[in-house]
Design a protein around this nucleic acid. Structure first.
Lengths: 221, 221
DNA sequence: AACAGAAATTTCATATACGAAAAATAAATT
DNA sequence: AATTTATTTTTCGTATATGAAATTTCTGTT
């Protein structure tokens, strides 16, 4: 199967193309990239021409050497390979209190701009009604990083490796969300926070929703 | 080199672990995953045990079959595999009106949590005093995506491929920031917005600051 | 405990990725 | 144009990734 010339690797969509483009753009030779990445020129050449499906560690070396995120290797900066007529810019608006909503007993999650797929940032508007750690339930953790901004009220942020910290409206926290974390409200009224989760990963949104749904199910029992 | 039992693949950090965890979590057998992904059970087993460095297309099959994004395969849910003494979580707090500040004539930019390097999300608090497009100056564009949330006042968002859109406090927009864009305030008082930029590139924060500094220089002339 | 069935691992033959060096091609210099 | 130099592609031997089937390990069940 696959006689000479026929590209074998059907899968890595634009990996070869991306490499070639990027290389051309910077005026690098294969030898240059080779020393940047530690991959031999012969292999690089084959990758560019789609003659082989590189090993995962080669892909990692590439991504590191070139300073390109893996996600970008898959999701090429959508440019020349499509008809130039196609506009790449996307935009989505969520009005106040709009958004795909999920309710738990002590939290309301509103996923903003959820019509945009494969976002790099997942914005979630959260109304915090939990007032104790018990109500908050199990602390969650997920891949990536998270930026929190308190919009209204006062909250306490609990996290795995830190003392709880008190946040008022206007305050922000940036945290590694692989740490377990949870929020409770310190005010009588529900507090409101905006969190944005990093997702090189289109599916983080999915994952996050699953986490919440799990919690809802657990509550029901 | 690498006698039996010694894991060969040094690079894919927790790929195997991730697979195993996720599989355990869902109660899937290797055969299940095999039919989900089209990868043989033997190969899956070896991947889990770090006995081989899978081909890129296998990794893609995995990611698709399991609904896990590639990025997640690289960014392991950082857990038990490191010595528990080593804390991986980072956290940074910026209080209201704190942050590394840059002033232009019509804007004040406050970079939040700027002590955290290599963030995936760049949060910037902006006070918008510009009231006309002239004052806003040239529209900016940069790699990545941007989430905007209006905190106070009313703003108009201009962007390359869309009609200007009016946003009030509480409204949000998600946009491809490679489109040129600019904000002006529609209220007498300065408006306040919070933007979070995705950073695919290592140093987007840097880049963004440079853009602003350029503008400051241009203003001076 | 002994067995049966399911699941995970290992074995082994084959296919393919990898890099060094050779060959082919392109670019620059005389 | 001819020659040199730089760059890319091919060739080819070795290492390793892959899947079918055999083996082992893990589960429950009687």
């Amino acid at each position: 199967m696959a006689d000479r010339d026929t590209p074998i690797s059907n899968e890595p969509p634009a990996l070869g193309k991306l490499l070639r483009d990027r290389r051309a753009h910077h005026g690098w030779t294969l030898a240059d990239v080779s020393s940047m990445t530690g991959i031999s020129t012969s292999t690089l050449s084959k990758i560019e021409n789609g003659l082989l499906s590189p090993t995962f560690d080669k892909v990692l070396q590439l991504s590191r050497g070139l300073g390109v995120e893996i996600a970008d290797l898959l999701d090429p900066p959508v440019t020349e390979d499509r008809s130039p007529a196609v506009v790449v810019g996307r935009r989505s608006v969520s009005r106040h209190y709009e958004g795909q909503q999920l309710d738990t007993k002590y939290y309301t999650y509103r996923y903003l701009c959820s019509d945009v797929a494969h976002k790099r940032i997942i914005p979630i508007y959260i109304e915090v009604r939990a007032k104790t750690i018990e109500q908050a339930g199990e602390m969650t953790s997920h891949v990536g990083e998270e930026f929190v901004h308190v919009l209204k009220g006062k909250v306490m942020l609990f996290s795995e490796y830190y003392e709880p910290i008190r946040l008022e409206a206007g305050d922000s926290v940036y945290l590694d969300s692989t740490m377990k974390h949870a929020y409770i409200s310190l005010t009588e009224e529900p507090s409101e926070i905006m969190i944005t989760c990093s997702s090189a990963t289109p599916n983080l949104a999915q994952t996050l929703r699953e986490i919440i749904k799990d919690r809802i199910l657990n509550e029901k029992q």
